[in-house]
């Protein structure tokens, strides 16, 4: 199934909740309104035409110029009714959910795809997006008392952590964020 068809199905089903679609380029995706996202996610997983049962990845994104944060959900369909036959066909699609940078909240889809639980914890930890109704939203990679969210483009590098000095080359390397 090509991305155009998937976009048409979604637009027909959800109307305004699908804010925009992009089918050309390296990464076809639809932009979905945050408040309708769990509903759309369930439809993507369970609709017999789509069956996106595998959530590959959640990539958080800092759109500093627009003062927004976003999550990109990459999905693929893995037919489970083929028995032990070799699966060679699949369809891929992505959904982007954009949220405000000052109050970043997106509803959790950990109940639709359990694998989202750790991905969402990672996005919370590194990008600071809060996921509503997440079963266990706490930091996963950074220590619990870490300050800030490192992948934000305006992140300030700490100069020390519990008395451990940070890199002395900070001024030299001058990360551009």
């Amino acid at each position: 199934m090509v991305p155009e068809e998937i976009c048409l199905i979604l637009e027909k089903q959800f109307g305004d909740a699908v804010q925009s679609t992009k089918v050309e380029g390296g990464h076809p995706h639809a932009v979905v309104a945050a408040d309708r996202w769990p509903e759309v996610a369930l439809f993507l997983r369970d609709d017999p035409r789509l069956r996106f049962n595998l959530l590959n990845c959640i990539s958080s994104l800092d759109l500093l110029a627009d003062n927004k944060l976003a999550c990109v959900y990459d999905l693929s369909s893995l037919p489970l009714d083929r028995g032990t036959a070799l699966i060679i066909e699949t369809h891929l699609f992505a959904v982007r959910v954009v949220t405000d940078r000052d109050e970043p909240t997106i509803p959790s889809v950990a109940r639709v795809w359990p694998t989202a639980e750790w991905h969402e914890r990672e996005a919370y930890d590194l990008m600071g997006i809060r996921f509503e109704n997440h079963p266990d939203l706490r930091r996963i990679l950074c220590p619990d008392d870490w300050v800030g969210h490192p992948l934000r483009k305006d992140y300030e590098f700490p100069l020390e952590y519990h008395g451990i000095p940070a890199t002395t080359e900070y001024e030299l390397t001058n990360p551009r964020h």
Partner: peptide
């Protein structure tokens, strides 16, 4: 079913009988 729901891939998905 669990393999796909938890996003397991590689030898884990194939060990559960899915030729992917």
């Amino acid at each position: 079913e669990d393999v796909v729901r938890w996003g397991l891939t590689g030898p884990l998905i194939r060990a559960s009988g899915i030729r992917w």
